[in-house]
Nucleic acid binder design. Structure first.
Length: 464
DNA sequence: AAACAGTGCGCG
DNA sequence: AAAGCGCGCACTGTTT
């Protein structure tokens, strides 16, 4: 494998980016050490309490009988053996890892529907929060500040990575978990934490590559909504019947997976499971399962690559949705994928819009995805460099303190907030497309701002 | 004790 | 024909 910046611009971006990120690293983000200590304490108490309650269950008794002194509740391998070898629960082929061991992740274990297991998963999640996040942050905090490292030389796609600790995977999707961790990140006195992110930057960059007119239309016309439309197709709904949750399901269970190279077989399962997990319904409360039944689809189907999807199954329906998706709706995108991959096969290399050449052995999905993931981050990096330089030149008190692929986190003095938001918006949405003419769709950003002295958890959207 | 593979889970 | 992209970190269980 050989990856290198081939153009001078590409080299310069990494050079300047490296220096800007060194600044970010030295600035650091303020940690509320009292809050952190308190959260570790309450989390430990909850772990103790739940663990004590769990010890009374049948599963736990069997576990201790089987493993005796070496019983370790942290071992999911042991749990798998207890459940599947001693308690008679069935482990299907699809629920095994590639090495043939029974899977013991949340998705698989939840399906067993055993009260103990649900409690167990809750405890494990609390342990994860305490070990990786709370204690991880505590260990790395110096004099009340955390200085995560950001690197540009470790990622195959020329994105960045972050470590010690990783600032790019702090919980947010599960509300109580996000709160537990993010309340520990606070603004400096008289400052506010400000996070500005590019909206749908990967979709925008992909549109710049394949120039699919339907996709460009979706980006430019605010009345159009790709995820809403696909929710309509996947669940056979009229536009008005699409709820926020069914849109969410289509976005993360169909549209993005398809863009990244997944296929109907897995999408169907995920969309189907989401009906139950997210309680997807029609506006009148009817379950989408029931709704699909009325449309002649009463089961998922085996989703087995070896078996051809049968009529009347959800699997078959999603296969048809996929065909329309790639052969009608986004056929220009589809053509680009084929052409781009063929050119790679011919030459053994491809070059990103930002001037980085990648050569060596890659799979089809890699070749399609890298030139989107990389340049999408480069938009952010280019902007971060300019914003950081501007803050330095104007000798402002505000500082950039972190970056998460498509967003910039800054600790902004309350008197500089307006200027900061204005300049960030200008650099990110106006100067960048001028500097890089290959960007042919409008770029947008969103800003989240915390109260003065508030925490990262308290951030609220603010119009620029 | 240190290194390694395998798993699982957090994020974009 | 093949069948989601990219990371870092903690932990278990085994090997060196």
């Amino acid at each position: 494998m050989k990856c290198r910046p081939t153009t001078k611009d590409a080299y310069q971006l990494l050079h300047d980016g490296c220096m800007a990120l060194a600044d970010v690293e030295s600035h650091g983000i303020k940690i509320d050490l009292v809050q952190l200590e308190r959260n570790i304490y309450t989390t430990s108490k909850r772990i103790e309490k739940l663990t004590a309650r769990n010890t009374k269950s049948d599963v736990c008794k069997t576990w201790k009988k089987v493993f005796g002194r070496s019983t370790n509740f942290g071992s999911r391998t042991q749990l798998g053996e207890v459940l599947f070898s001693h308690m008679g629960y069935e482990c299907k082929d699809e629920d095994r890892t590639k090495t043939g061991r029974p899977k013991a992740d949340e998705e698989t274990l939840s399906k067993l529907d055993i009260p103990f297991v649900q409690q167990y998963l809750k405890v494990e999640r609390l342990k994860k929060a305490r070990a990786t996040y709370l204690r991880g942050i505590q260990k790395a905090t110096m004099d009340g500040f955390l200085h995560p490292v950001f690197s540009l030389h470790l990622v195959r796609t020329y994105r960045s990575s972050s470590e010690a600790p990783n600032f790019q995977n702090i919980p947010i999707r599960i509300p109580w978990l996000g709160k537990l961790i993010r309340t520990c990140f606070i603004a400096r006195p008289h400052h506010q934490l400000v996070e500005i992110d590019y909206s749908g930057i990967e979709v925008c960059v992909s549109a710049c590559m394949h120039k699919d007119p339907r996709m460009i239309e979706y980006i430019k016309d605010p009345t159009k909504d790709m995820h809403r439309d696909m929710a309509g197709e996947c669940y056979i709904l009229r536009t008005k019947q699409v709820s926020k949750d069914s849109r969410f399901s289509a976005k993360n269970g169909f549209v993005f997976p398809e863009f990244y190279g997944d296929w109907f077989n897995r999408c169907a399962r995920s969309l189907w499971d989401n009906i139950t997990n997210l309680h997807l319904t029609l506006p009148d409360g009817t379950s989408l399962r029931e709704h699909l039944k009325n449309k002649g689809i009463n089961r998922l189907g085996p989703c087995d690559p070896k078996e051809k999807p049968r009529p009347g199954t959800f699997e078959k329906h999603i296969q048809e949705v996929e065909n329309r998706f790639w052969n009608e709706r986004f056929r220009v995108y589809n053509q680009w994928k084929q052409d781009w991959f063929r050119e790679y096969q011919r030459t053994g290399r491809f070059t990103m819009a930002t001037g980085f050449t990648v050569e060596g052995w890659y799979g089809k999905n890699d070749v399609i995805n890298y030139p989107i993931q990389g340049p999408a981050f480069h938009c952010l990096l280019w902007s971060l460099i300019r914003l950081n330089n501007w803050l330095k030149k104007k000798r402002m008190r505000s500082r950039i303190v972190g970056q998460i692929h498509d967003s910039i986190v800054a600790d902004v003095h309350k008197n500089e907030l307006e200027d900061y938001l204005h300049m960030a918006n200008k650099i990110m949405t106006q100067r960048l497309p001028k500097a890089w003419p290959w960007i042919i769709v409008p770029l947008e950003v969103e800003a989240d701002v915390s109260p003065v002295g508030g925490s990262w958890y308290d951030k609220k959207e603010m119009k620029i």
